[in-house]
Simulated scan of single mutants.
Amino acid sequence: MKVIIVGATGFLGSEVLRQALARKDITKVVAVTRRVLAENVVKADAEKKMENVVVKDYDVYDEKAKGAFAGADGCIWTIAITPMRASKTPWEEVVRVCQTSTLVGLRTIFESGPANPFRFLYVSGVSGERDQTKKPWYHTQYCLMRGETESQVLAYAKSHAPLIEATVAKPGLIVDPGNLGQRVLSMGLRVTGVVPSVGLREISKAMLDQVVGGFEKDPLLNADLVRLGAGA
């Protein structure tokens, strides 16, 4: 199986890449990044399995990138600007990165001739609100925009069914078990019930399993990701 990982140098994307390269049921990985992956990111014996496609940005794709996308069976899209960063970034740029780039990327991959069916998994967040009539209390504009992006991804897939299958992962706080500070924060959030959390290895395994084996449902909520990633 050939899988595209967009944002393979990020916090989540790098773990998805690590696990994808270790799986025998994934035979080819296309790691899409804005900078060349460091030599120590992957072992030498994985180099033939992985192709690093470096793009100017995630809404700009040249012919080389399109060629790498051809025949892909699935994609995990991890690119976004977090709510905290969004508050310090011009809104037009937030929309470009979180929404425009996602739709441009999905359309470009589809036009490049992926496998049939092609599975697209979009990583959003627990706060993304698809119902545009609602007014979330937390980062209202941001949450509505992320929810709108979810709906646009699903609508594009529906309009190209059965060639494209899509789902949205909606995690809460993604926690690196090797980071003590994050573990303490996660425990506090779970106790207070403010924000659910999922381990970095758990969500990565869950998403890869879904892309390889088929989507169980939409959306994949935080509890689903914890359950599906159990034992990671």
Rank of each mutant, 00 (worst) to 15 (best):
E111Q: 14
P114F: 07
A115K: 13
F118N: 00
L121M: 14
Y122R: 04
Y122P: 00
S124N: 05
S124P: 05
G125W: 05
G125D: 05
G125N: 10
S127Q: 13
E129I: 07
E129Q: 09
R130S: 12
R130W: 01
K134F: 06
K135V: 13
K135T: 14
W137H: 08
W137V: 15
W137S: 15
H139P: 08
Y142I: 07
C143N: 13
C143K: 08
C143W: 01
L144I: 12
M145P: 03
R146S: 00
G147C: 08
T149Q: 03
E150K: 02
E150F: 05
S151F: 05
S151E: 09
S151N: 04
S151D: 03
Q152C: 05
Q152P: 03
V153I: 13
L154A: 08
A155T: 11
A155P: 01
A155Y: 10
Y156A: 01
A157G: 02
K158F: 11
H160F: 03
L163S: 14
L163A: 13
L163C: 01
T167V: 11
V168T: 02
K170V: 03
K170M: 12
V175Q: 01
P177Y: 10
L180F: 15
L180A: 15
G181L: 15
Q182E: 09
Q182D: 07
Q182P: 12
R183A: 08
V184L: 14
S186Q: 12
S186P: 09
S186H: 08
S186A: 15
M187W: 12
L189H: 10
R190C: 03
R190P: 03
T192P: 07
V194Y: 13
V194R: 14
V195T: 09
P196K: 10
V198L: 09
E202C: 14
E202W: 11
E202R: 11
S204F: 01
K205G: 01
K205E: 06
A206N: 02
M207A: 06
D209L: 07
V211H: 02
V212M: 03
V212Y: 04
